[in-house]
Design a protein around this nucleic acid. Structure first.
Ligand SMILES: [Mn+2]
Ligand SMILES: [Mn+2]
Ligand SMILES: [Mn+2]
Ligand SMILES: [Mn+2]
Lengths: 220, 220
DNA sequence: TTATTTTTTTAGATTAATCTAAACTTTTAT
DNA sequence: ATAAAAGTTTAGATTAATCTAAAAAAATAA
């Protein structure tokens, strides 16, 4: 059984490696976990001994099969809890992350399977992130940045990239959540901002930076 | 902020001291937490330094006001989570304790207030234990052991003393949960066992040991 | 291709929680 | 009242997670 700390390392490496694809450097991990490189070196040695990752001195780490499975389960727990907090307890979507950071470490398979069922086996969390299933399978959605959308087209918001509370609160003001349909009404060339129409017909202007952080999918 | 370990000590001392009344010995704590007396001595010194308890060398500890408040909040969290697991997730009442032991350490006042509201501000947990309110107030019920009940009388089951999985599973077989009404039909003098009638009119025999571990209240 | 900068690792400490064994204090029994 | 037993504390180690500072390796620049 892994400690909270070990679990946090595995999850950090998973995210930093883009779902276990690339190798991750000591410094990247240290930065992400707000710790020091020397600490990371010690920890990755330990995780390598547990066969959760492959470690090549001076060249970073990459998750093993076992490491990926472990990471996916932690991500599954994190996202199920976030969904619970928003859907059942009435949290705002910008309030859930820190709590889920704690809840993701609770050890009980029964709990997670029952929670999953209670939530109706959701496929995405409140931020549109896919929830790995019981077997660690992640449903991939064909999505792209709103900044790449075409003028006049309708799309469904699928995910938000920036998870900061301020950004989430800003989007919440317009009920701009994953699942809602929007239409691009105008794209302003000089600064890349765009005017989009919301479900309630209201039109709002989104900066380039904002539209880049909203992912959308086609509205078939 | 207290560590999990510190919280577990405070809660253990609270329970062992009968809600903070009596002083508790080093050995009692060690036994309860399945650790060694030397370890306990170290920890209670630390907790004394944090003003959570008063420690007199060789004479045990007693919780301070602050210690009691802390304990009550942990107990509140534990029991709210147990209630959630049974009422919302469909756990059996013998399956919740270990999970609640973990969940009780999650730090988020917002979470607990929302969970409390979601559950409809329950007054007792699945085992009939009172849930301290937001301010740490515990509702006391006038209750006594079923073994003290009078032949012929009807009572409401209010609490179970023994929390072992086997005992809880045994009672579950007869739907003998807090809240159900039972009537004592016969008390057998030679071994103190009794025959009680359940809500569904079924009659079952309970040993003395069993009836001593079921608490009841008057059925006004 | 060397020198400089950046990154990573190692060495040596520190804090929290735990243990065993020995010393000490209190309680109980003779 | 003394001796034995029981309970508690202290002393000294250990493991996990962390840090700073120094050494080493790799990457980059001159
Ligand atoms: Mn999150
Ligand atoms: Mn999320
Ligand atoms: Mn419990
Ligand atoms: Mn309980």
């Amino acid at each position: 059984m892994l400690s909270f700390t070990e679990e946090n390392y595995i999850k950090a490496i998973y995210h930093l490696s883009d779902a276990g694809q690339l190798a991750v450097s000591t410094n990247d991990i240290a930065l992400h976990l707000q710790t020091k490189a020397a600490t990371v070196t010690d920890m990755i040695k330990k995780l390598a001994n547990k066969d959760l990752l492959a470690y090549e001195k001076y060249y970073g780490v990459s998750l093993s099969k076992k490491g990926k499975t472990t990471a996916l389960y932690i991500v599954r727990k994190h996202r199920l809890w976030e969904t619970f907090l928003v859907k059942k307890l009435g949290f705002q979507w910008d309030e859930v992350h820190e709590v889920a950071e704690q809840l993701e470490h609770i050890q009980s398979n029964l709990l997670i399977e029952k929670l999953d069922a209670f939530l109706g086996h959701p496929e995405t969390d409140p931020h549109g992130h896919p929830i790995p299933d019981k077997n660690g399978k992640v449903k991939q959605v064909k999505q792209f940045s709103l900044s790449q959308g075409k003028n006049g087209s309708k799309y469904i918001v699928s995910e938000v990239k920036d998870g900061s509370a301020t950004f989430l609160q800003y989007l919440a003001k317009y009920d701009l959540y994953p699942g809602v349909t929007i239409q691009i009404k105008e794209i302003l060339p000089f600064d890349g901002s765009m005017i989009v129409q919301l479900q309630n017909k209201q039109k709002i202007t989104l900066s380039k930076a904002t539209s880049e952080n909203i992912l959308i999918k086609n509205n078939e």
